[in-house]
């Protein structure tokens, strides 16, 4: 009895608390009205073309759908087919992982190292070198120049050069030989990959507090490597995190370059990636459910790698 009576007021208090929470929420929603209106145009488009498609893709991956008939629920069948009977998917997955494992870290480190060296130059030279390194990433489809460089006949620059200097007797089919083609795609992808992260690193390096470096010198930092490790890297952590996200996403998304250089499909699927597999099923075979399963796997692959690496970088030096 006593206990019950004692509980009563507590309940009432909780109830009124809930009510007041609701009323503060509506009050805040009203107060924020202008903010929602300002955000509306962007958010509507963003929802339509990013949020909804991700959700739809996830659901579609459990259906069989060819755009003509109604979707038919098939459960895990698409995923089972991908991992158990689609050999080409396994090749594409292996290529993508190999590709990401190389271009991701290499391009990330290259972005940093070049930004770091460029930052030591005088302002005019620095601006010039920044353009040189950044230009490939914004120069559109100029990467087709690499087609001429790696062309398989003697007109190809690389073949021409190697034959003139006597390293080769016969031209190599760089883009038609399984042995080389993935490496050529990797090389060109690296050439294109000094993009936004590179700029973010340059900016980060320029805003490092000078007094930190001077204080470091007093504290016995002997050379530039120590300065890099103990002062520069820790004070750039936000940019490093940002750059990591961009480079990782880029490393998993290779498709255009592979298709432009190696062809589609590439010789014996040597440069086939998860994205080109997705394009194959989505835009050529119109197996939308199956393609959605590929997209979902790609999504999980990209996001989980990103979250993992974020955690790793945050852990450095804390």
């Amino acid at each position: 009895m006593d206990v019950q009576e004692a509980e009563q007021p507590v309940k009432k208090a909780a109830l009124s608390k809930k009510e007041s929470k609701l009323s503060t929420l509506t009050r805040e929603l009203k107060k924020g009205k202008h903010y929602y209106i300002l955000m509306a145009p962007y958010m509507i488009i963003f929802t339509m073309f990013t949020v909804v498609p991700v959700v739809v893709s996830f659901f579609l991956s459990f259906f069989s759908f060819n755009m003509l008939e109604l979707p038919k629920f098939v459960g895990w069948e698409n995923y089972a087919r991908l991992f158990l009977s689609d050999d080409i998917f396994m090749i594409s997955l292996k290529n993508t992982l190999l590709f990401a494992a190389i271009t991701g870290p290499v391009s990330y480190i290259a972005c940093f190292i070049f930004a770091w060296i460029i930052n030591e130059l005088t302002p005019k030279v620095r601006a010039f070198m920044t353009v040189i390194f950044y230009a490939p990433s914004i120069s559109g489809n100029v990467f087709f120049i690499w087609l001429i460089i790696f062309s398989g006949d003697t007109y190809g620059y690389l073949n021409g050069f190697l034959m003139q200097t006597g390293f080769l007797l016969e031209p190599i089919q760089w883009l038609r030989d399984e042995q080389y083609v993935l490496w050529v795609v990797i090389l060109v992808q690296l050439w294109l990959s000094l993009g936004t992260s590179f700029l973010a690193f340059i900016a980060g390096l320029q805003t490092i507090d000078r007094s930190l470096i001077e204080a470091g010198a007093m504290d016995g930092i002997k050379n530039r490597w120590q300065e890099l490790w103990f002062i520069t890297l820790p004070s750039m952590k936000p940019q490093l995190l940002f750059g990591a996200v961009l480079q990782i996403t880029m490393a998993f998304a290779v498709a255009d370059i592979s298709m432009a250089l190696a062809g589609f499909p590439s010789v014996n699927y040597a440069a086939h990636t998860v994205v080109t597999h997705l394009i194959d099923y989505g835009t050529i075979r119109f197996e939308m459910g199956y393609a959605s399963a590929i997209a979902t796997i790609l999504f999980i692959l990209m996001v989980s790698t990103n979250l993992l690496v974020q955690k790793l970088i945050r852990g450095v030096g804390t």
């Binding site: 955000m39 991700v54 996403t249 989505g282 959605s292 997209a295 979902t296 790609l298 990209m302």
Partner: peptide, 23 residues
Amino acid sequence: IFSIVVLSLMFSPHVTAIPNYIV
């Protein structure tokens, strides 16, 4: 909202290509 935007930096537009066609 901001977390969703940051999350969307973590995957490429290829992921959404198929449903985009339907939209």
